[in-house]
């Protein structure tokens, strides 16, 4: 049975200029012990979708879904109190900015033991040993003396390790990492990703990795979900996606990487993600798409085999995309 099942998740925000749809009908199934990556540009709804699951969105948002179930429990028809027993314990989340997501007023030890007290009860002091153990587990040297340091005394990589220690304190079944390495250096990024995978394997937890870096996806995940403007445009196995992307947006994202460039110019995707005001009538990607035809700008794209496109690509067939023509000059 799937660990997490989300069917048709939609998030709307009430803004001064009307309602804004940030997430538009996402379906997501995550099995136990699996690594799934969610990829997309800023504004594609990848963070908002996961924040909705955690119940961390502000009151201006409206979250609707046909079903959200976690480990056999229905998260939708649950009181706030029941929900809080699961969130933070069985599902936990790491945020992008390690420096700003820790409370600067409290020591690292305080913040880690707080999680344990909250979910298991008891005195804070009694968890000190456990906190040291956790810090050791995430690779913080001299863990005992670090318990009393404040976040500002640690580097970015260290802060992210503390965040991870805090999140795995209750041995979650599902860990959501929202761009865990974007703010960090490459060497530290490699260390943190390795740590996450190591923990995923040793604890048997499922890991959802939100990122905009395709290279990170290639290095870590098994399955990938590509989001664009709140819609899920492609859902595939990582290897298949990299070998043979079916949606033009996935292909464009891959081609935009510097290592795939053929000459001095990169294959940029023109334009930006549509906002509240300039949402196209048909397929949302059509204004930026290399392959767009008349039909694309008029009718919404259909969902076929997990791909949201009128004309899915197939690289095995010889359909010459425009992008490649540009490359070869």
């Amino acid at each position: 049975m799937a660990l997490l099942e989300i069917v048709n998740l939609t998030v709307d925000f009430a803004t001064a200029t009307g309602s804004l749809r940030a997430v538009d009908g996402i379906n997501l199934t995550i099995n136990e012990g699996e690594i799934v990556a969610i990829v997309g540009e800023s504004g594609s709804g990848k963070s908002v979708g996961m924040l909705a699951l955690m119940g961390l969105l502000p009151w201006t948002s409206t979250v609707t879904a046909d079903r959200i179930s976690f480990d056999g429990q229905d998260l939708l028809n649950m009181t706030e109190k029941q929900r809080r027993k699961i969130i933070g314990k069985d599902i936990s989340m790491i945020f992008q900015e390690p420096m700003t997501s820790l409370n600067p007023c409290f020591t690292v030890g305080y913040q880690i033991t707080e999680v344990l007290c909250q979910h298991f009860g008891g005195k804070r002091k009694s968890y000190n040993k456990k906190a040291i153990e956790l810090l050791n587990q995430v690779g913080i040297p001299a863990a005992e003396s670090r318990l009393n340091s404040f976040p500002h005394q640690l580097s970015g990589g260290m802060c992210q390790r503390v965040m991870i220690a805090m999140m795995i304190a209750c041995k979650p079944k599902l860990l959501i990492a929202d761009e865990p390495t974007t703010a960090l250096d490459v060497t530290i990024q490699a260390q943190i990703l390795e740590l996450l995978i190591e923990l995923q394997q040793s604890h048997g937890m499922a890991l959802v990795l939100i990122t905009h870096d395709m290279a990170v996806v290639a290095e870590t995940a098994e399955r990938v979900i590509v989001l664009y403007a709140g819609q899920q445009v492609e859902q595939r196995k990582v290897k298949e996606l990299f070998d043979n992307p079916k949606h033009p947006y996935s292909e464009a994202l891959l081609n935009a990487l510097p290592e795939r460039a053929q000459d001095k110019l990169l294959n940029a995707i023109p334009g930006v993600v549509p906002g509240q005001m300039d949402r196209p009538k048909g397929c949302l990607f059509s204004p930026r798409c290399n392959y767009a035809q008349e039909l694309c700008s008029e009718e919404k794209a259909p969902l076929k085999d997990g791909i949201l496109c009128h004309f899915p690509l197939d690289l095995s067939k010889s359909r010459k995309p425009k992008a490649i023509n540009v490359e070869t000059g």
Partner: peptide, 23 residues
């Protein structure tokens, strides 16, 4: 070490990564 820490989309031949410990 810096080069090997940079993630790559080349999934077919994964390189042996040189691990840099510490900061």
């Amino acid at each position: 070490a810096l080069l090997s820490a940079t993630p790559s989309t080349n999934i077919k031949n994964k390189r042996q990564r040189i691990k840099l410990t510490g900061e």
